[in-house]
């Protein structure tokens, strides 16, 4: 059965927190409802669960890749073309260190950015329940569940004090 979404728009932070409590009480699991804000609130402001992420692993992997690429590039090119310049050693560590360092940092940063996008669950091809007013200061709570539980969700949100409720987006499974 296809999933349907409903979105309630709120203005007051405390009301949102209560609404989330009511949803929880009505038996919706944390994967079924979602909070949408236009601003980063301090974590747990609405009593929501702390998102778990593994972003810190990304730069390390990236740094390792960048380091290896840098090392291979610097040693490889010098060994492939071993010309003596200025009496400097063919595999002189200080210049290699500079290139390897830049490679390491580049790897770390590129991987971090990929990691940020991946861990943010972006890109999101299907927007789901959304309203442009969220970026205007409204706080949205969406519930995504089977079609027959939509009515209940809508009721809970309305009772909690949603200013506006929209529904009808379909989320493909």
């Amino acid at each position: 059965m296809a999933l349907r979404s409903v979105l309630g728009l709120f203005t007051d932070e405390n009301v949102v927190a209560d609404a989330m409590d009511s949803l929880r009480a009505a038996g919706y699991t944390s994967s079924e409802y979602e909070l949408l804000t236009g601003v980063p609130y301090p974590e747990g402001t609405f009593g929501e669960e702390e998102p778990v992420h593994k972003l810190y692993r990304w730069p390390l992997v990236g740094a390792a890749c960048g380091f290896i690429v840098g090392l291979v590039l610097t040693t490889g090119t010098q060994l492939a073309y071993p010309l003596v310049t200025g009496g400097k050693p063919i595999l002189g560590i200080p210049p290699m260190a500079i290139i390897i360092y830049e490679g390491t940092m580049l790897g770390a940063i590129v991987f971090t950015v990929i990691g940020i996008i991946f861990e943010s669950r972006l890109p999101r091809l299907f927007m789901g329940a959304y309203d442009p007013r969220i970026t205007e200061g409204y706080i949205g709570v969406t519930v995504t569940a089977e079609e027959d539980r939509m009515g209940q969700a809508e009721r809970v949100l309305r009772e909690a004090g949603a200013e506006d409720i929209t529904r009808g987006w379909e989320t493909p499974r």
């Binding site: 949408l36 980063p40 974590e43 998102p51 972003l55 940063i109 971090t112 940020i116």
Partner: peptide, 30 residues
């Protein structure tokens, strides 16, 4: 990319700011 503003996205945005700052600084110096 379909940004919606979930707590997860915001948290990563904040962490990203700090993490990328920390990573860019050594490049900046170099």
């Amino acid at each position: 990319m379909g940004w919606r503003g979930t707590p997860r996205q915001w948290k990563l945005q904040t962490v990203a700011g700090i993490l990328l700052s920390a990573l860019v600084l050594p490049v900046f110096v170099s």
